[in-house]
Design a protein around this nucleic acid. Sequence first.
DNA 1: ACCAACGGTTCATCCAGTGAACCAGCAAAG
DNA 2: CTTTGCTGGTTCACTGGATGAACCGTTGGT
Lengths: 254, 254
Amino acid sequence: MSTQSVVTAIRVLEAVSDNQPAGLSELSREVDVPKATVLRMLRTLAELGWVAQSEAQASKWVLTNHAFAVASRGSSGSVIRDAAMGPLNALQLDTTETVHLAVPDRGYMLIIERLDTPHVLRAFLPLGSRLPMHASSTGMAYLSAADDAFVDEYLAGPLEALTPQTVVDPARLRAMIADTRARGYSINEQGLSTGITSIGVPLLGSGGVAAGSISISGPSSRIVPAKYEEYGEAAAGTALEISRALGAFSTKGY
Amino acid sequence: MSTQSVVTAIRVLEAVSDNQPAGLSELSREVDVPKATVLRMLRTLAELGWVAQSEAQASKWVLTNHAFAVASRGSSGSVIRDAAMGPLNALQLDTTETVHLAVPDRGYMLIIERLDTPHVLRAFLPLGSRLPMHASSTGMAYLSAADDAFVDEYLAGPLEALTPQTVVDPARLRAMIADTRARGYSINEQGLSTGITSIGVPLLGSGGVAAGSISISGPSSRIVPAKYEEYGEAAAGTALEISRALGAFSTKGY
DNA sequence: ACCAACGGTTCATCCAGTGAACCAGCAAAG
DNA sequence: CTTTGCTGGTTCACTGGATGAACCGTTGGT
């Protein structure tokens, strides 16, 4: 691999992000690079304004919000976001529940947008959260549209349980994916967070490949089974609109 | 400056972020580094999953959402966010308007959180947006709490007008900052975006230094002068609560 | 047909990055 | 009150990875 100092620097950056606030030795171990090198990277990144010593405990390192500012303009982010926000907004107003927009990132679903419910009881998920695919409605929706090879690989990996309700058995997950395909939407009952139920639908990008997903989430007391079909179909309609805008069904070209 | 290849890589990354989708020569000019080097950096960053060739036009480079995922956990972000979300949530429910949480980043206000209004007519600002300080209520609120040296420096720089209503005259801006100080909240009438009015209040971090700001925004048809005082005071109360949580008025230590 | 831009490649030169060994400080263990 | 083992941080000789001028093939405007 080329430009190894850059590779090291980025790996340090990611390690900081994961261990927030992170100590020097800790990072050195994590990245498996001598402390001297890690420190040099941290200093350089600090000069550039991407990391800083924590105010609380100096000599602990943290990411700055400048990093957030620079990275916020995610590409496939932008394209999908632009296509999705209009329809998503309408969906939120229709259902009055929180809606999320998520895209895949290294085996997780990354929440890139959120529109809030006006209800006092709110599902809360900060932007930038990464959710395990098997434990979220967005993830299962994405898997239902992803190609088989990807699904096989994902299910072969370790599957963590986030709540007692999280399904981690690959066979059951496969069945749930099949149900999602048949039904058009996924259902997650408290598998991500106790008390939260959500319904997800996949988005297709150009060429019809899975590009992300949207979901409707709320407290399990409000998102009851009687509403699944209504919400699922509303979300599916919205997803269709977005996928169309992304050129999923475009005939031109190729 | 040390580890210059890392510096170059990050500068390339920021250039990509700013020019999205960016071509090779363009980036080379922007960063003032030979094309060969820029390309090497792009390839390395691509291997790491931070940038990718645009799907639309190959040989144009874009940021990936992985960059967003890593950088989302901004530190001072996190601390402020944790302290702010509770009170902000209450503020949003009280006013039913969109509320924003912003922190300073290199002369701009960076929007790090948003809670939406249930109204159909919505002010819309994607997370990660950077707003000029003089053109936003969050920015003016921040300036009203920042030290004089910072304000002088900011006002000395070029001040762009985003709408016909944007105030760019330093003298008038100074007067507005003084008003904001006296009143406790800033008012921005369509200076950022036509049809949008917003009200901002600064947040103080530990030691009482300006750390960010919050705002209430909505269509100018709804956020009318008759409501300024009500909203301003509600926001000021919320800000006080957050600042207190951040240790702005703590007596211990030092 | 021309020219000027583009994206991308090559390779000799040499300086920037590397990492083992080193301090000083701190906290728990003996 | 030592000892041990951790911490964050520093030093410096060595060398291999990063550099950038010059190159190529292609594309698009006139």
